[in-house]
Design a protein around this nucleic acid. Structure first.
Lengths: 344, 344
DNA sequence: CGTTTCTCCGTAAGCGTTTACGGAACTATA
DNA sequence: TATAGTTCCGTAAACGCTTACGGAGAAACG
């Protein structure tokens, strides 16, 4: 005999009473409750998660699906760990567990997600790396499971998401470049269908228009998230008839390669090429001259995500009566020395 | 009516037959199997994980417990995502899911782990950040659940672990230093009870003995994982009566601070101070002169971990009849320009 | 003293699967 | 034709827990 039945037998009472005692429900005298808890501690009892989940139809756990891109796998560590921390700090206070679900690249991300939600492994889902058009959002909406995406998507709009304020980033950076006298401003964009690439590009185009500058497709570079991309970027820019004098990086690590290539060419960041990078990361925090970039509290992002998902659980819903939360996290400019007045 | 019962009713057959058909077991005619699979696909059936786990007493999932350290989160190493990738690539081939369990710092790591294993959430556990004396190892052994630690521990030895070959790293580095003429060689060690600190120190002492050098406690520095530690280190070393001419860093990020402080003092890494760092990371990859360091395939580490845990499952055990795997991952030296002949 | 109201507890039916067991129908063997 | 062996399927118990329900006894009330 195992589990709760063992406790019940040991104490000569019924399993129902034991269950009620353990879960702090009523209909149990203080004395028997004390006995049950004592026996549970003594016998090292722990409730079987599967049985409990089956009986009450809830797992009390939230899944956080991320993607493992072997190409850039290493570089997403810092970001996600910070976010996990924020999510955890909120969820644990509500007795919810956080299960991180790393989707291998070899697998279809849709099917991977489907497995976990359809099988009822988790009560709620946090989605990262949201794609521009992301069928996973539709899936989650049709299933009706609470979820929140880290990053918007164009698939519907009636759901909760937390995103970074890319528009704010691009506007601030572009304004800064223009005020420094730059008129040929390049930008890097991510490969693939990830949504923030589209957001970033749109904001870039809008900023150009706002400043009366022409859009030049030659100044837009799709890059992967690594430093080699930055290295090659320099040569590509120089090869242009009229090279840009400034560049806005969506992946800060590219700055490393840019710095190196510039140095090889006897050029200096901030003087010969103005660089502003999206997101402050330890990877580039030590470059000289210091990189002008944007910083945001990863923990706060995680906290916002957790709150957004809690709002969808009747039992935990707090200040969000509507149950749907959409929030842009503000990024702060950390002025460095990698940008500056344009040369003419 | 839900789940398998719905399928059964729809097809006019029993739930037992449906279950057998879905799970590819015998005692089902090819025709009914086909019908069942068709109906399952049509109705979007997915087996309930809790019910299945309860019935067969197995969850088909492996937990990977990591720790979120907000203190060092800022410079958290780029490590785990790469390892996850390796683990996943193996586990998925065997139909096992990987659940990453990030332990919040606010919580006791022992209790956190206990919850997941005692409740039967996972069938196996991968443990990271193994401590020198780690009660979690004892817990897992007493519970009898398959597990493997990433990093050894002094708590017993009858279990599987994968670790980095710190001894090899230290030996290679020390040999290199000595052959370059260094005799006063400093080393940095991690704070806290993490096990690889002890391994690193022992290897350091052994290498000194092997080369007939005296151990000098003044040359051993406990540091945190950040660049400031490196910065301060330089001053501490210079303040010594006989400063070291070489230093082996357990945390490569310290190199950044060392470089900066050396530059301020008009000194040059590789000439005035030989530096070798443990682990190649993007964080330090941009430093000039390039850092001599050790590199290892994170993915391979993950693969080894997964194999080690599979060996403990009778159903999946392959080439490891004993079921217990202990493996050191070899690190390769990437010679840079941060070390060199000692000045006299 | 009869009735109502609590408090505490046991009973048992679920939750959705898996799986041992037995039986019916059919085929092969003697 | 009788027997043994297959193939296929249904029945029902089990997994460990939760929880609606009812009942016994004590307390409170008229």
């Amino acid at each position: 005999m195992r589990g709760i039945a063992r406790l019940a037998k040991e104490l000569g009472i019924s399993t129902g009473t034991v269950s009620r005692a353990l879960n702090g429900k009523r209909d149990v005298s203080e004395e028997t409750r004390r006995k049950v808890l004592e026996a549970a501690a003594r016998l090292g009892y722990a409730p079987n998660q599967a049985a409990r989940a089956l009986a009450q139809g809830t797992t009390r756990s939230i899944g956080f699906m991320i993607e493992l891109d072997p190409e850039t796998a290493a570089s997403s560590d810092y970001f996600f760990m910070g976010v996990f921390d924020g999510v955890q700090s909120v969820l644990t206070r509500h007795g919810l567990d956080l299960l991180v679900l790393p989707c291998p690249t070899t697998q279809d991300r849709y099917q991977y997600l489907e497995r976990f939600v359809a099988r009822g492994v988790v009560d709620g889902i946090i989605l990262a790396s949201t794609q521009r058009v992301d069928p996973r959002v539709d899936l989650l909406q049709s299933v009706g499971i609470p979820f929140v995406t880290l990053g918007r998507s164009t698939s519907g709009d009636g759901y909760s998401w937390i995103d970074l304020d890319f528009e704010g980033v691009v506007n601030t950076a572009m304004d800064r470049f223009v005020s420094q006298g730059h008129s040929r401003i390049a930008v890097t964009l991510p490969y693939g269908g990830v949504n923030f690439g589209a957001v970033f590009e749109q904001a870039y185009r809008a900023a150009l228009r706002r400043h009366g500058l022409d859009f030049d497709p030659h100044l837009v570079f799709e890059t992967r998230r690594n430093e080699q991309a930055g290295y090659r970027l320099v040569d590509k820019m120089i090869a242009l008839d009229v090279p840009p004098t400034a560049i806005l990086l969506i992946y800060e690590v590219a700055a490393i390669g840019i710095y190196r290539r510039l140095a090889e060419l006897g050029l200096v960041p901030g003087q010969d090429l103005a660089v502003i990078a999206f997101r402050d990361e330890p990877t580039v925090r030590f470059l000289e001259p210091s990189v002008t970039c944007f910083s945001v509290s990863l923990r706060d992002i995680g906290v916002s995500i957790a709150e957004a998902i809690l709002a969808q659980f009747p039992a935990h819903a707090g200040a969000y009566p509507s149950g749907i939360v959409q929030k842009l996290c503000h990024l702060e400019l950390r002025a460095g020395k990698s940008d500056g007045p344009a040369r003419h």
